[in-house]
Design a protein around this nucleic acid. Structure first.
Length: 366
DNA sequence: TAGGCGTGGTC
DNA sequence: TGACCAAGCCT
């Protein structure tokens, strides 16, 4: 047959999901739903924010820690932004954490602690866009919204062999997803499409033989599933350079300060340093030091951000007197691991203090 | 609309 | 080893 009716495809996928769905900490399985267990909108929201551009494996431990510490929206509304940022450290895209807090405050204060149930209303909340609003509406509230993430884009572009490159192809993909989404179990359907993309219809070497939708897949029929989705070419990454200074007090404390409230790594903590020059031949020398001390070169570290590569020259000085500056604060060896330090800063500190972030597990071993 | 915005894993 | 990729949002 040339075409597969969309309802047929929908049923096949839901049936596949019943048998092969992944078990995830934030997910209520089809079996549990049949027993009357309903998804908690707070947990659905939290997981969806964490999962934005982030792998399932990376999210698991953060999700568990967050719901343990802040079990509901009211608890999160009572936390400070700094608490949230410290707990989020390492997960990346820190504006998500700041918007998480904003959203929690807003829902607690203006919605009596209950999320609005429609995708349209959810999309008005901070940090919630097209994808996340549709996902929460479908999974937590049963609205047949078209949930389109990177997985769905790949699955649908292959099913229909869409030749329009992303991101322009998002429009027809959203329409096709809307056609396929059933009024019953829209949340399970969305999660089924995402599970299929994550486990079967993968970017490379998709397991088409195991796919419940292989029968009508046009990309497979053309023997080129990996050629979809088409994508516009992306720009080359520039290199920036800079210097970072690890000031260490006699007790091992490290001097930290807080980054500005806007821009890269907003609100996170850092060690003192130069600006990050877009010029590869810019000055990353000791001359950028925040104050005079016995600075010694501790090596260089490289860190790749989404849109540029950063090469930092690291300098360190020991036995620095605390009175030498009033900026920032001194973080003791025991406190350092709990600071809101992005990975690039942990790399810089580790260049000067190799065991700075090695956990206390060594104590258990000895 | 395109670019800013992190990180870790894979091949 | 570098390039790509992962449940996007905001401006």
């Amino acid at each position: 047959m040339l075409t597969i009716p969309s309802f047929d495809r929908t049923d096949k996928l839901l049936s596949w999901y019943d048998r092969h769905h992944r078990i995830l900490p934030w997910r209520v399985t089809p079996t549990e739903q049949r027993r009357g267990i309903k998804p908690d909108p707070y947990r659905v929201w939290l997981s969806e924010i964490m999962l934005q551009q982030t792998t399932v494996e990376a999210v698991k431990s953060y999700f568990t820690a967050f719901v343990e510490r802040w079990p509901d929206i009211e608890a999160m509304a009572q936390a400070s932004e700094d608490d949230i940022l410290r707990a989020w450290a390492g997960l990346g895209y820190y504006s998500r954490a700041r918007n998480l807090k904003k959203c929690a405050d807003l829902v607690a204060a203006q919605y009596d602690g209950k999320f609005p149930s429609s995708a349209a209303a959810l999309k008005e909340l901070p940090g919630i866009g097209d994808y996340t609003s549709a996902a929460i509406a479908a999974i937590a509230f049963g609205e047949p919204a078209a949930v389109v993430d990177g997985n769905v884009e790949r699955v649908i572009s292959r099913l229909f062999a869409i030749n329009t490159p992303l991101p322009a192809a998002k429009v027809p993909i959203r329409a096709l997803m809307g056609d396929m989404t059933p009024p019953q179990r829209p949340g399970d359907f969305a999660q089924a499409m995402m599970d299929l993309g994550a486990t079967i219809c993968t970017p490379r070497r998709p397991a088409c033989a195991l796919c419940p939708l292989n029968e009508g897949c046009k990309a497979l029929g053309a023997h080129e599933p990996e050629q979809f989705p088409r994508k516009a070419p992306k720009a080359q990454k520039p290199v920036r350079i800079g210097a970072a200074f690890i000031a260490i007090a006699d007790d091992g404390s490290v001097l930290l300060r807080k980054r500005p409230d806007k821009g890269l790594l907003a609100g996170m903590s850092e060690v003192p340093g130069s600006g990050w020059s877009a010029r590869i031949d810019g000055d990353a020398s000791i001359k950028a030091a925040p104050f005079a001390a016995d600075w010694l070169a501790a090596g260089t570290i490289t860190h790749v951000f989404t849109h540029f590569e950063l090469r930092l020259s690291v300098y360190s000085a020991r036995n620095v007197t605390r009175e030498i500056t009033k900026d920032g604060w001194w973080s003791s060896p025991g406190e350092l691991g709990g600071e809101a330090l992005p990975t690039v800063m942990k790399k810089a500190i580790t260049a000067a203090i190799p065991d700075a972030f090695k956990r206390k597990q060594e104590k258990h071993q000895s």
